[in-house]
Design a binder for these strands. Structure first.
Lengths: 121, 121
DNA sequence: ATGAAATTGACAATCGTTTTCACTTCTGCC
DNA sequence: GGCAGAAGTGAAAACGATTGTCAATTTCAT
């Protein structure tokens, strides 16, 4: 992808690194950028498979896209306001490795997310 | 609610304590139970506010309902053939609690899945 | 039994997301 | 430069989960 992806990425950065596809689209419209909703979705998906952004789910099921550094980390997400804290995996990393080995799995990865209600909500 | 809620609850139990609204509806249809999809949704929502069931989100955004009392466990999934092993959370449970507390989060839950390639693939 | 209130369910509407398809823009090759 | 074919784009339609509507049914207290 050539034209759209960088523009979508820039918009996501500008939005504080955290927005749904619909929101990114609306922002770009408001700023006068010419882009289709379909392309926003495709760009975001592409950015996800590039590991440039992360995708999570809000409580209502809407997907939210989030810029993410290359370091492996986990998330602590507020179900209510979407506030996200990046946290260390700590004991999990080893747990995942041991469990996988124990059952003969190779090339393993894992996801782990904690969700709840943050102090403000 | 009177007639439907217990039937939905029973179906959810029967399904292994873990299913989406659509799945519950399909199961009940198959078993010859007469119920509307709308009512399944309403019953599940009601069970959630009764704290009898939990609601999570699948990766694709579909809501899955889980019996609260159900033993909490995690999954080890083969990316290739889909084989799934239920595993214990072990160290994770505590990690999640500590992390959440540390950041002032309340009413927390977590999801953790390990994926990889199983010995056969 | 009876009327008010709660429950139910077929259907339509909504909303995020994906697919389709015709059109445009790139690309490498002559 | 021109030109095929591939890749990218976007409007509109399709899709699937969920929610709203509303008339019919059931429940419950009297």
């Amino acid at each position: 992808m050539t034209r759209s992806k960088p523009r979508v990425l820039r918009t996501l950065e500008h939005a504080g690194g955290f927005a749904s596809a619909q929101e990114v689209y609306k922002i770009m419209q408001r700023e006068g950028e010419s882009i289709g909703l379909t392309t926003v979705y495709r760009s975001l998906q592409s950015l996800v498979s590039d590991k440039i952004v992360d995708v999570l789910r809000r409580d209502d099921g809407e997907a939210i896209y989030r810029l993410c550094g290359e370091a492996h980390h986990h998330h602590l997400v507020c179900k209510n306001c979407g506030k996200t804290v990046e946290i260390e995996g700590g004991a999990i990393e080893n747990w995942a490795k041991v469990m996988a080995q124990e059952h003969g799995f190779r090339d393993t990865g894992h996801i782990a997310e904690i969700f709840g209600t943050c102090s403000k909500c």
